[in-house]
């Protein structure tokens, strides 16, 4: 079965693209460019927002454990999905402090491996101009900087980040 993820290339849904790239060994997702982001999953069902798309892909591929290993981790991931879509766009305000302290003792945001939380929070920061400025001027909070750089050097992040964001910077 091949799913088709249609992406709006003017504002690429990086979290969805990272998730699709990460699960590609078990879920075949073709990427298509269009006007609106959407993942068609059945005749009458499409998901149009990033959080729904990543949840669905993670559930389709449980072997990649992107949605946590138990209910507590799952709840933390839900928390960060909402956080990334609501608090990491535009002005960052106190969100960075909150994120920095959450990362102070962690390599990944939730549990001991990569999850949807890392994909979505990284993606929101990656396209945020305030964050880009902090990062390039060396003003980024230290734990986020360490985590962001660590992820950016991962193969999946390099390929998706390189392919989809060079035009916007």
């Amino acid at each position: 079965m091949t799913l088709t993820l249609t992406v709006n290339s003017a504002s690429p849904p990086l979290g969805a693209l990272l998730t699709a790239e990460h699960v590609k060994s078990t879920v075949n997702v073709a990427i298509d460019q269009g006007k609106e982001t959407s993942l068609k999953v059945a005749d009458s069902v499409s998901f149009n927002d990033v959080n729904s798309i990543v949840r669905y892909l993670a559930r389709l591929s449980p072997s990649h454990v992107l949605y946590g290993t138990n209910l507590l981790e799952q709840a933390e991931i839900d928390h960060w999905l909402e956080f990334s879509s609501r608090h990491l766009s535009g002005q960052l305000g106190s969100a960075l402090q909150e994120l920095n302290s959450a990362l102070s003792l962690r390599t990944f945001l939730v549990g001991n491996s990569i999850s949807l939380a890392d994909f979505c929070v990284w993606s929101s920061l990656k396209v945020n101009s305030t964050w880009q400025k902090y990062f390039s001027e060396g003003q980024a909070p230290c734990h986020i900087k360490r985590w962001f750089s660590f992820l950016s050097n991962h193969e999946v992040f390099k390929s998706v980040g390189g392919k989809w964001t060079c035009a916007s910077v």
């Binding site: 709840a75 933390e76 839900d78 928390h79 909402e82 956080f83 959450a102």
Partner: peptide, 8 residues
């Protein structure tokens, strides 16, 4: 971490 949001 504390979970925020009624939906979550």
């Amino acid at each position: 971490c504390p979970i925020e949001g009624e939906g979550n």
